[in-house]
Design a protein around this nucleic acid. Structure first.
Length: 277
DNA sequence: AAAACACCCTGCCTGC
DNA sequence: TGCAGGCAGGGTGTTT
């Protein structure tokens, strides 16, 4: 569900309250999350309870909490999967169904991880170096991705440009929505091989940054149930020009927006604006 | 090596 | 109205 702009919005919405606050208790549902792994209750007790939050960060679509307890440093890795939510709530508020982790903070406040489909992840580690999930992740498009790096990476892949952009090892943080939007902005056909995107590489990189920045500015895209850490929905749905608009007319040329399915995922594009060659 | 596919799980929507 | 089937914004592991 959440892609880079949604995860960034969640991070921003919870970081002010979380930073420098102490975690006083921890609870887990015990149900398996991503890849049948349960949240490690021992690690929660030995590393998280009693620790203070030093920083709240994002890497790709992952949320990272840097913790310190005495001289012990830890990192909590959270992925929202398709249906995950990370929210600050009053302890007195009823827990939503499918709540899987609750971290109790000072002052009647809790950080809750809720995930109906359980495609998300919640993992405690001693350091970032232990986290293989982000070890070979590609560059952050809004921070450290130059045109030179991007163009070189493109030239080495025969994959369709859509698959290329979704591959977190090549570029971090993009998902199905923002890939469709970026390809439309840059007028690149989704199935064009990455290595043939040369002349359009500068426009594509700019489009990737544009749609992500706009997504963040609008505080994320809410299609059905995405909300930030304070329960607020995003406004970016109105900014989408192709995603979810099959059969509607292109905002640029008035042709009919099409949907195609590859690898089980929908891609939306304008057949006229986005030429294969 | 890389692409295609199955799979994890629940909820919601559609159509019969 | 009820129920089966399809579909969903992600990532991983296996197979070709």
């Amino acid at each position: 569900m959440p892609e880079l702009p949604e995860v960034e919005t969640v991070v921003r919405s919870i970081s002010t309250l979380l930073i420098n606050s102490k975690i006083e208790s921890a609870w887990t549902s015990g149900l398996p999350l991503h890849m049948q792994k349960v949240v490690d209750a021992d690690a929660l007790n030995s590393r998280v309870v009693g620790a203070s939050v030093k920083q709240v960060r994002r890497r790709g679509k992952y949320i990272l909490l840097d913790l310190v307890r005495g001289k012990t440093f830890s990192v909590v890795l959270i992925h929202l999967g398709m249906s995950g939510k990370l929210m600050l709530s009053r302890s007195s508020e009823a827990r939503l169904p499918h709540t899987h982790v609750v971290l109790g903070l000072k002052g009647d406040c809790e950080l809750r991880f809720v995930d109906p489909r359980r495609f998300g992840q919640f993992k405690v580690a001693a350091s970032q170096a232990e986290l293989k999930e982000i070890a070979d992740m590609g560059p952050e498009p809004l921070d450290d991705l130059s045109l030179e790096t991007f163009a070189l990476s493109l030239s080495k892949s025969k994959a369709p440009i859509k698959a290329f952009l979704l591959d977190q090892r090549r570029i971090a943080g993009l998902g199905n929505i923002y890939v469709s939007e970026a390809l439309f902005e840059a007028r690149v056909h989704p199935s064009k091989p990455a290595l043939k995107v040369k002349r359009q590489a500068p426009a594509l990189l700019e489009s990737v940054k544009l749609v992500l920045r706009k997504g963040i500015e609008n505080r994320g895209t809410t299609l059905r149930d995405y909300v930030d850490g304070k329960g607020v929905a995003g406004n970016n749905k109105h900014a989408l020009r192709v995603y979810g608009r099959e059969g509607e007319s292109c905002t640029r040329c008035e042709s009919t927006i099409r949907r195609s399915v590859d690898a089980g995922r929908s891609t939306f594009y304008c057949p006229v604006c986005q030429k294969r060659l």
